[in-house]
Computed example of a mutant assay.
Amino acid sequence: MVSHEFQQQRLIGYARVSTGDQELSLQIDSLLQHGVKRENIFCDKLSGAKADRPGLWLCQENLRRGDTLLVWRLDRLGRSLRHLVTMIEDLKEREIGFRSISDGIIDKTTPSGELIFHVFSALAQFERRLIQERTKAGLAAARARGRKGGRPH
C-alpha cells in the first residue's frame, strides 16, 4: 500500500516595518482578514535594505510547495526591484504562489498576475542594463581625464 501525504495549501504572511517605532498592526490585520492564520504570519521590524531579516528567513523556511506567500504590499518584501524579482522567481521554482494585497493585480497564482510580474521582471532587467551603461560611461569619462581606477600598486 502506497502512502500519499495530503498537504493542504496554506497562506503564509510576511509583514515588515522599517523601524521599531512603527506598528505592524495594519499589515497583520490585513493578512488575517485575507485568511492567513496568526501562527503563519512572520514579521520583521527593520529596514528592508538589510539582507539579514530573521522574520523573512523563518517565513521562507516554513513555506512548502503549494503554499501561497501573502504580503500587504510589494515593498514590504524586497529590498529593490531586482531583489523582489529574484525572490519571487525563487518562490515560483519552489512551486509557491505569491500575492500582494494592496497591489491587488499582482497575484502570481493567476495568468494576469503572472503577466504583470513578467513586466516587472523586464523593468528590473532594464534597470540593471542602465546601471551597467552608466558605470561604463563613468569609467570611460574618468579614464579620459587621466584617472585610473582600482587599487593602488
Rank of each mutant, 00 (worst) to 15 (best):
M1E: 03
H4T: 12
F6R: 06
R10M: 07
L11E: 07
L11S: 09
I12A: 07
Y14I: 14
A15N: 12
S18L: 14
T19F: 11
G20Q: 15
G20M: 13
D21N: 15
Q22F: 09
S25K: 14
Q27V: 07
Q27N: 00
I28Y: 09
D29A: 00
D29Q: 08
D29P: 00
D29W: 00
D29H: 00
L31S: 05
L32K: 01
Q33P: 02
G35K: 01
K37Q: 15
K37S: 15
R38V: 01
E39A: 14
N40T: 03
F42K: 14
F42M: 09
F42N: 12
F42R: 10
C43R: 12
C43L: 11
D44W: 07
L46Y: 03
S47N: 12
A49D: 03
P54E: 09
G55Q: 11
G55D: 07
W57C: 10
Q60I: 01
E61H: 12
E61P: 04
N62T: 05
L63P: 11
R65F: 02
R65G: 06
R65V: 09
G66F: 05
L69P: 06
L69T: 07
L69S: 09
V71Y: 02
R73W: 08
D75N: 13
R76S: 07
R76N: 06
R79I: 10
R79A: 02
R82H: 14
T86G: 11
M87E: 15
K92D: 14
E95T: 13
G97I: 06
I101N: 05
S102T: 14
D103K: 11
D103T: 05
G104D: 11
G104I: 02
D107Y: 04
T109F: 04
P111L: 03
P111Y: 04
E114D: 14
L115E: 04
I116P: 01
F117D: 03
F117T: 04
H118K: 14
H118E: 14
H118G: 14
V119S: 03
S121P: 03
A122F: 06
A122G: 13
L123D: 01
A124C: 03
Q125H: 08
Q125K: 11
Q125G: 08
F126V: 02
F126A: 06
F126S: 00
E127L: 02
R128G: 01
R129T: 10
I131K: 00
I131G: 01
I131N: 03
I131W: 02
Q132I: 00
E133N: 05
R134Q: 13
T135G: 06
T135M: 13
K136Y: 09
A137W: 05
A137K: 10
G138K: 10
G138T: 08
A140F: 05
A142D: 08
A142L: 13
R143W: 05
R145S: 15
G146I: 13
R147H: 11
R147G: 04
K148F: 13
R151S: 15
H153Y: 13
